[in-house]
Design a protein around this nucleic acid. Structure first.
Lengths: 141, 141
DNA sequence: GTCCCTGCAAAAGTTTTGCATTGCG
DNA sequence: CGCAATGCAAAACTTTTGCAGGGAC
């Protein structure tokens, strides 16, 4: 139901299945390189290009989600396709998932204001995580 | 008041001022490379590293904003520092600014649910732009 | 005189693509 | 037999960093 729906189902080859398994089993949001390393553990011999192309394909079919958590230049992947958002720590860069939904009035307002037919959204909340504590940076940084 | 506040003001050298001018004058959200090209027009001889470092510095001081519109791997810059969000077309990749605010109850809910002290957020709405039209993809494809 | 900034160039990483081989339909 | 997928390796880009020269204070 997402963009670029899977009209033609993805052929789930053993390699692609392994990639999908790894992404789904990951609680963090690994980069392509990290996924490659993990898949290599259970299926030695697989090439990076295969993993890379599989990720793009799976993402296009909505089986995994591509993320930009803002840490420079690396796309991350999320095996959780149910709608959810992310919170990123402005201090240490850690992140967490969070389930919230925006009121439909917001999407409507955006559609009206811009003329775009809004179908979805990605929210990245920013804040300080519990580990970094409520205190601001101490004197010596 | 943002993260990494400007305790020590940025020294606004001619090069940095030129970079800031260009970013502020841009209605689109150019990448570092694009900004470099534009600055080169009005100030030939400036180096890419200078532009690149200036952007990082300006962003750290809150004078410009770094964006990830999801188009692969390129950070984009926004000279508009007032709070606003973006809408990206799922079809052609075009985007537009939009001014909306999330109800504070949302941020509160996220704080409670995750333990992160939420201070801000970035929303990327997805939808089809007016140019791409309301029609879904025709039979072919 | 000291320190920061600039420019040029190279390094480090990611993301993409080409191509011959392999396997499945 | 034909086509798509895989692996290896090389491109194409972005993002960062090192250094010597120059200017500002």
């Amino acid at each position: 139901v997402g963009p670029t729906s899977a009209q033609a189902p993805v052929r789930l080859t053993p390699q692609r299945a392994a990639v999908l398994d790894v992404v789904r089993a990951s609680r963090d949001h690994p980069t392509a390189r990290e996924i490659f390393a993990r898949v290599g553990t259970v299926r030695p011999g697989i090439g990076f290009a295969t993993v890379y192309r599989a990720l793009g394909l799976l993402a296009a079919h909505g089986l995994v989600r591509e993320l930009n958590l803002g840490d420079g230049a690396s796309v991350r992947y999320d095996g959780n396709t149910r709608p959810h958002q992310h919170v990123v720590c402005t201090d240490c860069g850690s992140f967490a998932d969070v389930s919230v939904e925006l009121p439909s009035t917001i999407a409507d307002a955006v559609s009206t204001a811009t003329g775009y037919a809004v179908k979805g959204y990605d929210v990245r909340f920013q804040g300080r995580c519990p580990n970094c504590g409520p205190a601001a940076a101490p004197p010596g940084r």
